[in-house]
Design a protein around this nucleic acid. Structure first.
Lengths: 162, 162
DNA sequence: TAAAAATACTCCATAGGTATTTTAT
DNA sequence: ATAAAATACCTATGGAGTATTTTTA
């Protein structure tokens, strides 16, 4: 199975016209005909009934069409997810926070965060400010919300609330 | 996205060793390394941390792995379905059902079904009603038998038993 | 007879091979 | 010192192009 050929199949199934499908795929008609033939041979099944005047789906073609659309959509979704990850819009954010932040800071921050980055999951860990610094250093969390004065070495800090 | 490369990725992810993965894929090691590099470039993301002594998945690789396995399984399932069709089974009906239907509803339905459509094969999958709705939407099953009230969006429901 | 698919061929990109080098333990 | 990945280079398969022929409404 080959996603490229499946895309070709879907284009022809939707256009029911090799010339127009080829245009839509930005290629010429003969290689498209060939690829469809190869797909048919691979599956050992006719997918289209064709004359020079009329192209129509066979039963097998009608069966394959929604499956192909679905599979292609899922493949695209994998691509998209990887892309989002790469751009920091997906993944898991590990947060450490002190108990006292649980009542005001965290709820506000989390709802705003989810609004802006809906694809990102998060883990919440309660820990003291000192533990947060250690966990940050060790790479066990990505972000800490605590009371500690910033430790100057390799921990970046921002004032959130006073 | 290209299923071939994804298969290569899965092999390396499972072996964590380019040489063994290449063997398993019946190819030599250098082109496998190349294809993995090309996949990484295509996704613009490192999938493996590698030294000459140790290969391990990056976060992105760990994320991709189950997605890849799933996508490949679905592609294979499309192949299999087409193959079954071709062999004169008019098709396959994929049914999801809740365990509680196993005692009365399913046996009756199946024997009647087989009587009326002897050419059609079926696959049975036990799953909760919620999972059935998801699976229907995703096109992994054709029919669900559950207790759920019908989800109004794009799921058609009929009362079978009360 | 004309629109459209199939066929015939050419070309080039790329997947895969072998030989070798680099690297880290 | 050695196992294993990377690199360099080569080959050949096959995907895509153009030109042409065949087919049928």
């Amino acid at each position: 199975m080959n996603l490229q050929r499946l895309r070709y199949f879907v284009a022809v199934a939707e256009e029911l016209h090799f010339g127009r499908a080829a245009q839509r795929l930005h290629m010429s008609q003969p290689p498209l005909s060939q690829q469809i033939r190869l797909l048919e041979r691979e599956l050992d099944t006719a997918l289209f009934d064709r004359s020079t005047r009329r192209v129509s789906l066979t039963d097998a073609g009608s069966f394959l069409y929604p499956e192909a659309v679905r599979l292609l959509a899922e493949a695209d979704s994998v691509d998209r997810l990887m892309d989002q990850r790469r751009h920091g819009q997906a993944g898991t954010l590990r947060v450490g926070f002190v108990d006292s932040a649980a009542y005001e800071v965290m709820p506000r921050a989390l709802s705003e965060y989810r609004r802006r980055w809906p694809q990102v999951d998060y883990e919440l860990h309660t820990m003291s400010s000192d533990e947060q610094v250690k966990a940050l250093r060790a790479g066990r969390i990505d972000l800490g919300i605590g009371r500690a004065a910033a430790d100057p070495e390799r921990v970046e800090a921002t004032l959130v609330m006073q």
